[in-house]
């Protein structure tokens, strides 16, 4: 490991693409008050103009600059250099769960595919005097709506990070939180529980909480979204008492995945394509 002299930074940036790559070292003077993204930008503006890095707001609000800093998934724009051990080399590598495009930029399209499979918000009819919701009714959902879609939770989740084949049937923490938000939305009318269990792969999560640990917005994904969803699914399919209660009280049959599937973006798109063909 190369030595780092005082007043100097030694950055090891992973550079490469789908065909392979390696860490490349950059040395530059330390400056006061910088975040990691500033240092990456300085390298870009001087030594490596084609260094690929994704960013946008540089204020921790858009969730574009996700990467792994010394192996920890973080936002580059919200990690101050002074919080890192800068007397040692600092490594920056792309998120490991998603295919690499180039350098620090990954292909996060998996997340956008999952989004298309979320049964949309479906409110009941609007009363004449407008919808009414109280602060206590919206607060739970508001926590999840703080999400900036940085996908760091998706990146750290071992279900897909370490077992990639699960991407085909697991939505990941970000979207489980989105589904929890919909299930808790006071105006929503769909029942997505069976869909969440079967198509969104809720059972794959083993509640080991890494998503919560890395979330830059401090969303309690596991405790407030995933576990409540697991409990809702238990209500519906593993709790004979609740099942009996439904039978006796004549509650409607829980919706099946097929019932809610038409409300997804993917279904809407397919319908549109069908219409276009027919006309």
């Amino acid at each position: 490991m190369s030595a780092v002299s005082t007043g100097e930074l030694l950055m090891k940036l992973w550079r490469g693409d789908a065909s392979g790559g390696d860490f490349v070292e950059y040395r530059l003077p330390a400056q006061e008050g910088e975040v990691v993204l500033d240092v990456v930008h300085r390298i870009q503006a001087t030594e490596a103009p084609d260094l690929a890095v994704r960013w946008n707001c540089k204020a921790g609000k858009c969730g574009s600059c996700s990467a792994e800093i010394n192996g920890q998934p973080r936002l580059m724009c919200m990690t101050r250099m002074s919080t890192l051990p800068i007397d040692e080399p600092i490594t920056i590598s792309p998120m490991r769960t998603f295919p690499v495009i180039r350098d620090l930029v990954t292909d996060v399209s998996y997340n956008y595919e999952v989004a298309k499979l979320i049964p949309s918000f479906t409110p009941g009819p609007r009363p004449a005097e407008g919808y009414r919701m109280f602060q206590v009714d919206v607060e739970r959902g508001q926590e999840f709506r703080k999400c900036i879609e940085c996908f760091l939770c998706q990146n750290v989740c071992h279900v897909i990070r370490d077992h990639e084949e699960n991407k085909a049937h697991y939505a990941g923490p970000r979207f489980l939180a989105r589904l929890a938000e919909l299930e808790m939305h006071p105006l929503d009318t769909l029942d997505r529980r069976a869909y969440i269990a079967e198509r969104m792969g809720l059972g794959y999560c083993n509640i080991t909480k890494c998503c919560t640990e890395v979330c830059p917005e401090g969303i309690h994904i596991t405790d407030n979204a995933i576990i409540p969803l697991k409990e809702r699914v238990v209500d519906q399919r593993y709790d004979p008492v609740a099942w009996l209660g439904r039978k006796i009280r004549g509650r409607p049959r829980p919706m099946t995945p097929a019932d809610v599937e038409p409300y997804t973006g993917a279904a809407a798109k397919a319908a549109r394509a069908g219409q276009a063909e027919a006309s």
């Binding site: 295919p99 595919e113 099946t256």
Partner: peptide, 29 residues
């Protein structure tokens, strides 16, 4: 206790593409 449905359709995603960074077995923390 609920009638199950057929095996769900997979999320359309290509598995097995090259990922960045050093091999996964290497811990960078």
């Amino acid at each position: 206790v609920v009638e199950g449905t057929a095996r769900p359709a997979p999320i359309p995603v290509e598995i097995g593409r090259a990922r960045g960074g050093p091999p996964r077995s290497k811990v960078l923390r």
